[in-house]
């Protein structure tokens, strides 16, 4: 039996139609991102971290001790896997998550206040500095939150929770007139 599989983005249903102009507070959904999880072998955590952070194209997101999400803006998923295999071939387990996770970028002057409605972590720059990242609970959904700028946050969520998180974020941002669209 022959089946056709369509590669649809998890939020295609939510963001259908012509995109509206972005407001001051804007939620941008990465269309196709290269994301992978890296889990270092026991005892090799520092070696793997050093290898990964030596490459400026890769963005490291902390998940737990010896575990990171690696996001690449320039690579394709296959290219990212090849690069990670070269960087830490036998030192870590690497799994491609490009189709398994959805990346959302929340920007705007009220981004912190929007996130504060669902996240129990202090987001003041003194406590959660630029470049910081961590796993947190947003409402009832576990996400990875990273601060990439003063008013710029990146959220990485499992694909199956993406629609739910998207709805939650739009509700959290309704008072601030949050708009949403695919990037590019």
């Amino acid at each position: 039996m022959v089946r056709d599989y369509n590669n649809r983005h998890a939020l295609d249903q939510k963001l259908r139609g012509t995109p509206k102009p972005a407001n001051a507070d804007h939620l941008e959904v990465g269309h196709w991102q290269a994301i992978a999880t890296v889990l270092a072998h026991v005892g090799l955590e520092t070696a793997v971290e050093r290898a990964l952070s030596s490459t400026p194209e890769l963005s490291l997101r902390y998940c737990g001790p010896g575990e990171w999400l690696v996001v690449s803006e320039v690579d394709t998923p296959v290219g990212l896997m090849r690069r990670l295999d070269m960087l830490c071939g036998t030192q870590a387990h690497v799994v491609d998550q490009s189709d398994g996770r959805v990346l959302m970028r929340l920007s705007g002057p009220c981004a912190r206040r929007i996130l504060a409605k669902g996240i129990g972590v202090d987001l003041h720059p003194a406590a959660f500095a630029r470049g910081g990242s961590t796993n947190v609970l947003c409402g009832h959904i576990a996400i990875n939150l990273a601060r990439t700028g003063e008013d710029l946050f990146e959220l990485i969520v499992s694909r199956s929770f993406a629609e739910s998180l998207f709805d939650d974020l739009m509700t959290m941002g309704r008072a601030f007139d949050l708009s949403a669209a695919f990037s590019d």
């Binding site: 998940c63 737990g64 575990e67 961590t134 796993n135 609970l137 576990a142």
Partner: peptide, 9 residues
């Protein structure tokens, strides 16, 4: 205690 939504440790 299991830190389910965080580091999962």
């Amino acid at each position: 205690w299991h830190h389910i939504a965080g580091c999962r440790r």
